[in-house]
Structure formats: C-alpha cells, structure tokens
Design a protein around this nucleic acid. Structure first.
Length: 491
RNA sequence: GGGCCCGUAGCUCAGCGGUAGAGCAGUGGACUUUUAAUCCAUUGGUCGUGGGUUCGAAUCCCCCCGGGCCUACCA
C-alpha cells in the first residue's frame, strides 16, 4: 500500500542481514557541522594535499548527489549543513555499495578528513560511514520545502526539518526568552512560579478555561494573568519578582491570538510606571540586540527601530492627535457613545465608558503606533488595578507599549490602596450587571493581602509571542508558537 | 460566529465536463569534485468525505470534514 515505506522497511532488513544495527544506541561525534566548516576555513584555503586530522560528524541526510564511484551527501545537524564525499576507492566496495541503503531523512555518521572540493566547498572526505537511525518516511520536497500551512503546524518537526526560516524563528524565540531572564536576573529580579489552576481567574478581563479537580470535587480555572499572585508576593516582601509563563484565555483564534500564550509580568517595589517604562525600553532593545544582532526589525512592511528612548504620548493627546477626539468634551458613556456612533464606530450596547474609550483608541490610535511608543495615563474605568494619577482622579498611572501597530506591553503604578481597590472591583461588578461579561472579578483573598500593606510598586506585563512576531518579522502568531492550537482531526 | 478562498502522487503544484499530469522524492541504468548535479528509462492516485446533476464529474450543485485570509470578542 505505502510503497515508499515498504521500500525503506526492506532496506532495514537488508541492513540487519549485513549485521548492521539501523538504530545503534550511540553515535560518535567529535565535531559539529559548523565546527568542521570553521576548521576548514581556518586551514589553508587553497585545495592542497595537506591533511587535517580525521573527524567524526553526524547528522540527517538532507541531500544526495550520486556521481557513480563518488557520492556527495549533505548532512544537517543542529549547527547547520556539512557536505561529505564518499568515494568507492576510499570506502571499499562493500561499504560503498551499502550506500544504496541510505535514504533522505536517515541519520548517518561519517569518519574522515576535513578537506575542500575543487570548488572550495568544506567537505569531510569519508573513510567510513555508519547508519545512526533509519527514517521510514521521505522528508518534504527539497526545494520548496513544506509549504502547506496546516501541515507545517500539525507536523512541526517536518517544518523544522525542511524550512530554515522556521528553525531561525524558534531559535530567536529561545534567545529572547533567555535574554529576558538574564536581563531581569541581572537587575535583582527573582523568578517565581504561581498557580496555573486557580479558584478564581483574575488580573485581566477575559473568559477563562474551566477544569475540574476531582480530589476536592471543585472546579478550577486556568489562569488568565499572573498579576494578583505576584502582587501577593510583593506584599510578602519580595521586592522584585517576575514570572514568564503560559496563560490561557478562552477566546478565538486570529493572527495575533492563540488561546494559550506566554506572558511576562514583573513587579518592582519602590518603582513607579516611569521607572518601568525606562526598564522596558532598555530590556526590549537589549534583548533584541542580543538575539538578532540589531535593534531594528522589519514587521508588516515597516522598519521598526527599538533603540531607546521610545516615544511617549498621553492617551488624551493621542486621541486628540490621531482621532480628532477630545475626551474632555465626552466625559461619560452617555455622551461618548453617540459621538462614536456618529463617527461610524461599532460599539457594544453594554459597553461602559472604559470600553468605549478603548474602542476609540483601538480604532484611531493603535494602528498609527508603528515605532515603539508608550501611551500614558489611561482613564480609570479601563484600569481597575492601577493607581490614580495625583491631581487627575479620572486617570491612572498606566502605560501600554505599542510596537508595529499593536499592543506589546502594559504597565502601571500598582493600586495599593485596599479601600480604593475594593471600590474598583465593585465598579467592575456593576459593569458585569450591565451586561459586560469580561470584567475583573472581586477577589477577596487578594484584597485581604492588600489590606496588609503593599509598598508603592511598578508592574509590567508583556505578551512574549507578540514581541516575537515583531522581532522575527512574522505576520502571524502561529509562526512563533511551535505547536499552535488547531481543531482536532476526526477520522 | 459571519464573508471569501483552498483541499489532485510522499512533497510542491498544473488540469476546471470527454482516457488523471509535471517537477522533486522513489525504482533501474550511466557518470570519482557535485551542491536545486546532469543524462536515459520507469513505478506511484478511492482527485478530502458523502450525496446529487449528466450519456459521462477531479471539473457543475448540495451536505459534511480540515485549513487559509478577512471580520467580530479577547493581549
């Protein structure tokens, strides 16, 4: 039925008949592909008879060019490609004939001298070869790679095998994540882990996933943010904490949405949102420089420069500037809604002032914030966990960071007044009663913690996946998540 | 959830009422410095699934399955 697989299974049998284990438990490798290339580059660049000491390389067979009594094979390992040259007079007739049993996708090891070919290509001239692991399926097409989006996501290993860009994106992701940890650790932050299964999912306005804890016969919610637990730790006396971990929101899929995504949150006692802004622009630009070698990147047709300082503009000024909308003239939901409707914006009937303002901002301001920008001082209705701005009781000390036209981070001077916090939760409750089901829930346990005193604190949150979209220049979040959510396949 | 588009060989794609095609991969052959190797020959298909229209369906219509883009809610 599956003829290609049957052929490969037959080759397995032939290998075993020759006394060769097609899946040996160990491999010998003295050099990676990159190391051999460097070794050859560092030696006499002219092709000569000078002999370098033999090396052992190992990798997946990704290309094969059979020339009769000489065969070229390209091996791919974690560091890149290396060409090997297998010649009948070097290997002997039996070992050379056995090359028939090597297919694309197999892992082999080669022992031989590093050399250059006539064209100067660094190559290992094989003295012997070893089967390391036989593949039973053919790899994707060598030139076009794996292009089908669905296959690339469902069979990510094939995507990684075939497409160098994919390998690069996830390599960058790894470097960015470790770079962020290094940056924060270097500033005296302590990494902590807080519960994913929670009795109440708070800290953000989003629908949670629900699961059930059998032993206690109680429902649990998967966390939708990290905020409330991290602040409890600040109450407890950990001055600088952060967590980078998966959070879950029971919402739709889209080019910038995956229901599980990685969130970074930091909390720094004795800092405010101005401190945080300086830290964020320094952190993102530093990490970009480390991971990409540059502070500029290309995203959705724009060249983005991440070098600090980033642009700063207040929420009010931005709406005035980009939307010709002056909130001073529309201070309540009752006044603002008809104005937005007059302008042709669609707004939910249950939307309170906060949601209306947010809608206006998303429509007029957000798409214009291509270069990194801090949008400062949000309306209090939109930010139930942020501290009010002195002298402006309707504003809070909050910023969102925008890059490439969408939100990449969110920060505030944390609300540490437990009485005000309780009042804000209750305002959210009123919104819920009015029909908005995506609001902050009252969290009495968190309030009890705040009542014990939390120092003035600057907090920050950032979607790592979205940052990665910008840094790698990928147009969809699925390109920076190894295994994005997909509908399950039914027979 | 709504709109538009896509599903053909292991992979990348043509074909869009009249005998199912190409390139790569595979198989056999030639070739000891190639590198998208080249050259000769050749195997391989329930055309996503199920129904319908038709003398005849990969092609037209409908249902379903999966995916992509746009759109709405959420970061």
């Amino acid at each position: 039925m599956d003829e290609l697989m049957a052929q490969r299974l037959a080759k397995l049998d032939q290998l075993r008949a020759m006394g060769i284990d097609p899946y040996p438990p160990r491999a010998t490798r003295t050099h990676t592909a990159a190391e051999v290339t460097a070794l050859v580059e560092a030696s006499d660049p002219v092709q000569t008879d000078t002999h370098l000491a033999p090396v052992d390389v190992a990798g997946r067979v990704v290309a094969r060019r059979d020339m009769g009594k000489a065969t070229f094979v390209d091996l791919l390992d974690g560091t890149g490609r290396i060409q090997v040259l297998l010649r009948q007079n070097q290997l002997g007739d039996v070992a050379y004939e056995a090359l028939r049993l090597i297919d694309l996708g197999d892992f082999i090891g080669v022992h031989g001298e590093p050399m250059r070919t006539r064209t100067g290509q660094p190559t290992v001239g094989a003295a012997t070869w070893t089967m390391l692991a036989k593949a039973l399926h053919a790899p994707p097409e060598k030139y076009h790679g794996l292009a089908d989006m669905e296959l690339r996501q469902r069979l990510r290993y094939l995507d990684l095998m075939a497409n160098e860009d994919t390998r690069r994106n996830f390599t960058v992701r790894s470097r960015v994540v470790s770079g962020i940890r290094r940056f924060l650790d270097g500033r005296g932050f302590m990494e902590v882990e807080t519960p994913i299964l929670q009795e109440a999912a708070g800290g953000a306005a989003a629908r949670p996933f629900v699961t059930h804890f059998n032993a206690l016969d109680e429902d649990r919610f998967l966390r939708i943010s990290l905020e409330l637990h991290l602040k409890r730790l600040v109450v407890g006396g950990f001055d600088r904490v952060y967590e980078m971990g998966r959070i879950f929101r029971n919402e739709g899929l889209g080019f910038k949405y995956n229901p599980e995504f990685t969130m970074l949150e930091t909390y720094e006692a004795y800092a405010d949102y101005n401190h945080v802004a300086r830290m964020v622009e320094t952190m993102v630009s530093t990490v970009a420089e480390e991971a990409l070698g540059t502070m500029t990147c290309s995203f959705r047709g724009n060249e983005i420069n991440l070098a600090p300082p980033w642009e700063r503009i207040t929420f009010h000024d931005a709406l005035r500037h980009y939307g010709q909308l002056d909130l001073d003239g529309f201070p309540t939901a009752e006044r603002l809604r008809p104005e937005l409707e007059r302008r042709g914006l669609e707004v939910a009937p249950a939307a309170g002032f906060g949601k209306l303002v947010d809608e206006a901002m998303s429509h007029y301001v957000e798409p214009n914030l291509i270069q990194p920008t801090f949008l400062l001082d949000y309306p209090v209705e939109l930010s139930p966990l942020a501290k009010r701005k002195p002298g402006s009781p309707h504003l809070v000390e909050r910023f969102e960071a925008f890059i490439g036209g969408f939100e990449a981070g969110n920060a505030y001077t944390e609300l540490n007044d437990p009485v005000d916090q309780r009042a804000r939760f209750e305002e959210q409750l009123a919104l819920r009663a009015a029909g908005d089901d995506e609001v902050e829930l009252v969290d009495d346990d968190f309030l009890f913690a705040l009542e014990h005193g939390m120092p003035p604190t600057g907090g920050f949150g950032m979607g790592i996946d979205r940052l990665l979209m910008v840094l790698t220049g990928q147009p969809t979040i699925r390109e920076v998540i190894l295994f994005p959510q997909l509908r399950s396949l039914k027979d």
